[in-house]
Computed example of a mutant assay.
Amino acid sequence: MFLNQVKTPVKNAKYAHSIQYYVLFTLIAITGLRIGEALALTWDDINLKNGELTVDKTLVYPLNTQPYISTPKTQSSYRTIKLDDHTVTLLKKHRVNRNEVVLMYTNYVQPDDNTIFFQHEDKWLKTNVVREYFKEVCKRANLPVLSPHALRHSHAVHLLEAGVNIKYVSERLGHSSIKTTADTYLHVTKKIEDQAMEMYLRYVK
């Protein structure tokens, strides 16, 4: 519901032709990227042919200070994430769309550094702007007002509930250890353990 709401054009929106937010939020929902990791991405970080995304930096945007690119949160945050075909296709559309947007709106400036997500003034997309937009979409969709981190959280929950190995989930999220993943998603792992025990008992009876 949330992503469908993002995809739906808003009447009289300033940059209605842009699909940037839809692509950004879809990417986070499908990969579990942290918001800073997503905003720091350049096209050099994505191999559309192989369907892979490399995380080796993050965008830091301190309050009332200039943003800057920094190293990832932890050593384990350096990682390569597999992308599905739909997301690869969407990224290809976004690459075309952003060129169209630059031509369509006179105040939109193409960034020099090949950044994937950017503001119209040729700057990184601000994390606080993204969060505010996320809240607006939540309100339009009559959903609880959350932050973009909810998409990362949902991605992890869906993987675990689908029966994906917790070690894989931990590595995909860039957690420092499996324990971090297990502690964070204790409610999910407990549910999986209960289901596994039920399956085992049915098997041995």
Rank of each mutant, 00 (worst) to 15 (best):
I69T: 09
Y78H: 10
L186D: 12
K73P: 05
N50C: 11
Y68N: 06
L83F: 13
A13Q: 15
Y78C: 06
T115M: 14
T106Y: 15
V130R: 06
V23A: 09
D56G: 06
V109A: 09
G163T: 04
S77C: 12
Y22V: 02
D112W: 12
E52W: 11
Y185M: 02
P111F: 05
D183H: 03
V145K: 07
T31M: 00
G51V: 14
E198P: 02
T8C: 11
Y21P: 04
L201K: 09
K7E: 07
G32E: 04
Q20E: 13
T31C: 02
D84K: 14
T89N: 12
V10K: 15
I30Q: 08
Y78I: 02
N142G: 05
S76H: 09
V23W: 06
Q195G: 02
Y108G: 02
L59E: 05
D85T: 04
I69W: 07
Y78V: 08
L3Y: 08
L186R: 04
Q5Y: 03
E193S: 12
D84A: 10
K139D: 10
V109H: 04
Y61W: 10
H120K: 14
T42L: 10
T80F: 02
A162R: 00
A150V: 13
D56S: 11
L160K: 00
L27G: 08
V102D: 00
E198M: 07
T80R: 14
Y15E: 11
T181Y: 00
L103K: 14
K135P: 03
K14F: 12
I69D: 00
Y21F: 06
G36H: 01
D194Q: 02
N50G: 14
K179T: 08
L83G: 10
L39R: 00
K49R: 15
W124T: 10
L63G: 11
E37C: 01
K179Y: 08
D56N: 15
I178A: 05
Q5V: 02
V137Q: 08
S154H: 10
P111Y: 06
Q75E: 15
L159I: 01
R140A: 09
F118E: 03
Q110L: 14
A13L: 04
I192R: 06
R131M: 05
Y22H: 15
R98M: 15
S176A: 06
M104I: 14
E171G: 07
T181D: 00
L160T: 00
K82T: 14
A196Y: 01
H153G: 03
S147I: 15
L159Q: 05
E37L: 08
F25E: 01
K14T: 09
K49D: 14
S170H: 00
T8A: 10
T42I: 11
A141K: 07
M104N: 12
A150Y: 02
H94K: 13
L146A: 13
S18E: 03
L90A: 03
Y168L: 04
D183F: 03
V129C: 13
V96D: 13
P144E: 08
T26P: 01
K11Y: 14
K179G: 05
Y68K: 13
V96L: 12
K49I: 15
K205E: 14
Y133V: 08
K93G: 08
D113C: 02
